[in-house]
Design a protein around this nucleic acid. Structure first.
Lengths: 137, 137
DNA sequence: CTACCTGCAAAAGGTTTGCATAGCC
DNA sequence: GGCTATGCAAACCTTTTGCAGGTAG
């Protein structure tokens, strides 16, 4: 992968922003530096960066995907009212309800642990890449 | 809310299906019973049902939202290869890596706890509903 | 009868992609 | 010079919405 000013700028935006921005938000900021940058490039670069592990994709319950420059182990909580996404340190778990409320005043209504990995079937068949991007199960 | 055959059928499909179907998958099955049902209706009904707590919306990392008829506390793990979503019992946590591998052979690569609730700011302003559907943060 | 629900079709996001040009090495 | 990345625009996919007609209570 070649160096590119745009990709580098996008990485900096995400890493220096604790707000877990959406692609659209990254785009807005990137345009301050590269006025002619396109949204397509932002998406492409964000996906590349997250595939190489430089940043993390996090899925929000409200439409668009968000990106996180913190790659160390930690979790997220989303306010169902203002929809901001906050960080939670791993040590504040588990169980989150009381310790989070005590430490930062966030009232936990629901939480879900989403785990990604490879299931037994796929491991037994030595698969570790998506079978087919378009296949639905 | 009035009774409706279609909504009832949709609820049954989700509840009797442990595959955490997408709206599209529910639509396919519903058409076996109501050949003229529309995708719009499926989305409308699924959203209503999840708002009244009859089922749960779960967000997958691969595009579309999925629905779950199990409403008791449990979590999910998604195979990054076949993209199926499996249930995890709450007792198998925490920490998931070893216990899940031992009990069902799923190799945990990443996991994330996503928590939803109300942040301190919103609570102090007595807000508990989204400020503005279209507002971005 | 009235309110709610449906099918249909169009619109609205959000995200990806094809192509010609520009930039990195 | 060759490969990669970019801007632009169109396409794509998922989800929502407006409307006219149908169904439940």
């Amino acid at each position: 992968m070649n160096y590119s000013q745009q990709r580098n700028c996008i990485l900096n935006i995400v890493c220096s922003n604790p707000i877990h921005p959406t692609a659209e938000q990254v785009y807005e900021q990137a345009r301050n530096i590269f006025p002619r940058i396109s949204l397509g490039t932002v998406y492409r670069d964000l996906n590349q960066l997250s595939q190489m592990g430089a940043l993390k994709k996090i899925c929000s319950s409200y439409g668009s995907v968000r990106f996180d420059g913190r790659t160390d182990p930690h979790f997220h909580m989303e306010c169902t009212c203002c929809r901001r996404v906050f960080d939670v340190e791993k040590s504040e778990l588990f169980s989150p309800e009381k310790s989070i409320m005590d430490s930062c005043g966030f009232l936990v209504r629901r939480y879900e642990i989403s785990i990604q990995g490879i299931c037994r079937d796929c491991r037994e068949k030595n698969r570790d890449l998506p079978i087919d991007k378009t296949e639905k199960r």
